[in-house]
Amino acid sequence: MKNKFYLIIASLLLSMIGHAQTSNGPQMADSFRSEGKIYVVIAVLSIIFTCIVAYLIYIDIKLKKLENK
């Protein structure tokens, strides 16, 4: 019984230490990520990059036609 009591106290203290560490640790975009809005940014990045790559492919093909003339 006594052992169990100590175990509970120890686990409570441990969880407090753990909590203190997360709140004092370096700030990261945790809430931003958990809200899911980061996916919007990734989508925007993907669209921009896809457009650039498509444009490069277009130029590449056009150049090839010019070379074959």
């Binding site: 640790g25 370096p26 990261m28 975009a29 980061i38 990734i42 990045l45 993907s46 990059f49």
Partner: peptide, 20 residues
């Protein structure tokens, strides 16, 4: 494309000053 997407999502070391 892979680095633009997964680079934003994967877990990175938590460091002061640098942060994200």
């Amino acid at each position: 494309f892979y680095t633009l997407t997964w680079g934003m999502l994967n877990s990175v070391p938590r460091l002061d000053i640098l942060n994200e």
